[in-house]
């Protein structure tokens, strides 16, 4: 176990080094002058040159990268060229919104995926069909369709924003502020659903296939031969043995969802890191881009590590 965590931490460090390194190399070779963005379009050439020096932008790439890394270890990811605030402060402001959106979307995806995998009635076929159609549509189309239907026509749900800031849902849930919680939920439903549909289908298909495989397994025949009811057979002998592939897929999809928020947050004007990233890229705001990259990479690694640990708990044959 300790060996496993050590190996994963080592891998995480390497992955983060590669990711930030890639951002630095991109910065070197991409057009657009971040200093102009930083100082404004009207800055004099002399001021720009001076600022380049003070931002260390004229230093060799490796030395700048080294500077970035040593600062990062102290928790300093640099200053955003665009917002003029520390990137860490920006992330602190935008990350909670994204976390809440993705967590809700992930719960949706698990729920819909489980429904997709297990319901065997006509209604189940219908749900599967709707999900499949939703998953094949591009997210922006789904988002626009949802806004037109639920906001413009029915007026059930708001189209943009999230009705507060910070960890809005978590905070109101803990403090029992149901009015705020309800409003937050209303805001989050549509974007979360758009984000969840494609992952739900991926999770559901894998889970469905592995459930069907397990149902035909020899040990399930043994369980039936004991005279257990179908519910007991399913609950005790099928579920735990089928969950592994579904879990792997869920872990992967959670990572994809954090990356997928860029489009969805833009459409719903959701104040999260997806929106932040979308605004940073055209401004050549590399400190901000690198900061978001580090966060996404870390989320990816942590979720997959957690998934592997849950799998080892579910299946005693897996040794970490």
């Amino acid at each position: 176990m300790i060996g496993f965590l050590t190996r994963r931490t080592g891998a995480a460090i390497i992955v983060l080094l590669v990711l930030t390194g890639a951002v630095f190399v991109l910065q070197q070779y991409s057009p657009g002058d971040p200093v102009k963005a930083y100082l404004g379009a009207n800055a004099s050439p002399a001021a720009v040159a001076a600022e380049r020096v003070s931002l260390h932008l004229d230093d060799p790439l490796l030395s700048r990268y080294w500077h970035y890394l040593t600062q990062a270890i102290r928790g300093d990811l640099g200053i955003s060229f665009r917002t003029h605030r520390p990137v860490v402060t920006d992330l602190g402001a935008f990350l909670p919104a994204t976390v809440e959106l993705v967590v809700v979307a992930f719960l949706f995806a698990l729920l819909l995926g489980a429904l997709f995998a297990t319901i065997r009635t006509l209604a189940g076929t219908l749900v599967r069909g709707i999900l499949l159609v939703g998953a094949t549509a591009p997210p922006f189309l789904l988002a626009l369709g949802g806004i037109i239907l639920f906001y413009a026509h029915l007026g059930w749900l708001p189209a943009t924003g999230r009705g507060g800031d910070g960890f809005l849902l978590a905070h109101s849930l803990v403090t029992g502020d149901w009015a705020v919680f309800g409003a937050g939920l209303q805001h989050v439903v549509l974007p979360a659903f758009v984000l969840a549909v494609a992952p739900a289908v991926s999770i559901g298909r894998i889970l469905r296939a592995s459930l069907q495989q397990t149902l035909g397994a020899d040990h399930v025949r043994t369980a039936r031969a004991k005279g257990l009811t179908e519910a007991a057979v399913f609950g005790r002998h099928v579920l735990r043995n089928s969950i592994g592939p579904g879990l792997s897929m869920a872990g992967l999809q959670l990572g994809f969802m954090f990356a997928g928020v860029v489009v969805v947050e833009q459409i719903f004007s959701w104040p999260g890191i997806g929106n932040y990233l979308a605004e940073s890229i055209p401004a050549a705001d590399y400190p901000a881009i690198a900061g978001v990259t580090v966060v996404l990479g870390a989320v990816y690694i942590v979720t997959n590590t957690v998934v592997d640990m849950i799998q080892a708990l579910a299946d005693p044959r897996i040794a970490l």
Partner: peptide, 22 residues
């Protein structure tokens, strides 16, 4: 099910796959 529970016991060929691994 009641007959299987009370009257029958089964041993299958491959004890590796016929026992629940988890």
């Amino acid at each position: 099910r009641a007959v299987r529970r009370r009257e029958l016991g089964v041993i299958f060929q491959d004890p590796m796959t016929s026992l629940n691994p988890t």
